[in-house]
Computed example of a mutant assay.
Amino acid sequence: MKPLRTHSGVSLLELIVTITIVGILAASVMPLVRNTAIRSKEVELRRNLRVIRIAIDDYKKSFDKMPDGPLKTGSGYPKDLQELVEGRDFGDPKVGKVKFLRRKVLNPLDPKSADDEKWGWELRSYKDKPDSTKWGGEDVFDVYAPQEGTALDGSKYKEW
Rank of each mutant, 00 (worst) to 15 (best):
A114I: 02
N48L: 05
R50M: 11
Y144R: 07
L84I: 01
Y59I: 07
W119R: 00
S125H: 00
G137W: 04
P111Q: 05
R53H: 12
P78K: 10
K127L: 13
F63L: 05
A151R: 15
V140Y: 07
N107D: 02
W119E: 01
D92E: 10
G120N: 03
N107P: 00
I52Q: 01
L152R: 02
T133P: 02
R103H: 10
L101W: 04
D131V: 07
L49M: 14
Y144C: 01
K129H: 09
G87N: 07
K118N: 13
K60R: 14
G120E: 00
D58L: 14
R50T: 11
I56E: 06
G76Y: 13
Q82Y: 01
E86S: 15
K134Y: 08
D92R: 09
I52V: 15
S113T: 07
M66A: 12
G120S: 01
K129A: 15
K97E: 13
G96T: 07
F63R: 09
D131Q: 11
L81E: 04
P111R: 06
A114N: 10
V51R: 06
L49G: 13
D80I: 01
V140F: 06
K97F: 02
K99N: 10
V98E: 14
V51N: 04
I54Y: 02
F141Q: 12
S75P: 09
K127R: 15
P78S: 12
E83W: 02
I54H: 09
I56S: 07
R124T: 09
G120T: 03
